Simulated scan of single mutants.
Amino acid sequence: MTMETGPIRDFTIDTPQSELDDLNDRLARTRFPEKETVEDWAQGIPLAYVEELVAYWRDDYDWRRCEAALNAHPNHLVEIDGVDIHFLHVRSPEADARPLILTHGWPGSVVEFLDCIGPLTDPVAHGGTAEDAFHLVIPSLPGYGFSGKPAETGWSVEKIAESWHALMTALGYDAWYAQGGDWGAMVTSAIGAQDKGGCKGIHVNMIVAAPPKAVMENPTEEEQQALARLALYRAKGAGYSKQQSTRPQTLGYALADSPSGQMAWIVEKFHDWSDCDEGEGAHPENVFSRDRLLDNVMLYWLNNAGASSGRLYWHSFGSPNLDPVEIPTGCSLFPHEIMRASRRWAETRFKNIVYFESVERGGHFAAMERPEAFVGEVRAAFRAMD
Rank of each mutant, 00 (worst) to 15 (best):
residue 1 M to L: 14
residue 4 E to A: 14
residue 7 P to W: 04
residue 9 R to E: 15
residue 15 T to Q: 05
residue 19 E to D: 06
residue 20 L to F: 03
residue 29 R to W: 02
residue 29 R to H: 05
residue 30 T to Q: 06
residue 36 E to K: 13
residue 38 V to R: 14
residue 42 A to N: 03
residue 43 Q to L: 15
residue 45 I to P: 02
residue 48 A to G: 09
residue 54 V to Y: 03
residue 57 W to V: 11
residue 62 D to Q: 07
residue 70 L to I: 13
residue 71 N to S: 10
residue 74 P to W: 00
residue 77 L to T: 04
residue 84 D to M: 10
residue 85 I to G: 01
residue 89 H to D: 00
residue 90 V to M: 10
residue 90 V to Y: 07
residue 91 R to T: 15
residue 105 G to E: 06
residue 110 V to N: 10
residue 112 E to K: 11
residue 115 D to K: 15
residue 120 L to F: 08
residue 129 T to Q: 15
residue 133 A to S: 12
residue 137 V to G: 01
residue 142 P to N: 15
residue 144 Y to D: 13
residue 146 F to R: 12
residue 151 A to W: 04
residue 155 W to T: 09
residue 172 G to Y: 02
residue 181 G to A: 06
residue 187 V to C: 00
residue 191 I to H: 03
residue 191 I to A: 09
residue 195 D to T: 07
residue 198 G to V: 05
residue 198 G to W: 03
residue 198 G to Y: 04
residue 200 K to E: 02
residue 200 K to C: 01
residue 201 G to L: 09
residue 207 I to L: 14
residue 208 V to F: 05
residue 218 N to C: 09
residue 233 Y to I: 09
residue 239 G to S: 11
residue 240 Y to W: 11
residue 243 Q to K: 12
residue 249 Q to F: 11
residue 250 T to D: 00
residue 251 L to Y: 07
residue 252 G to L: 12
residue 260 S to L: 01
residue 261 G to S: 05
residue 266 I to T: 12
residue 269 K to T: 08
residue 271 H to M: 04
residue 280 E to M: 13
residue 283 H to Y: 08
residue 294 L to K: 10
residue 306 G to D: 07
residue 309 S to Q: 13
residue 312 L to T: 03
residue 314 W to T: 12
residue 319 S to P: 02
residue 325 V to T: 02
residue 327 I to Q: 02
residue 333 L to C: 00
residue 338 I to Q: 13
residue 352 N to V: 09
residue 354 V to F: 11
residue 355 Y to T: 12
residue 361 R to L: 07
residue 362 G to W: 01
residue 364 H to L: 06
residue 384 A to T: 08
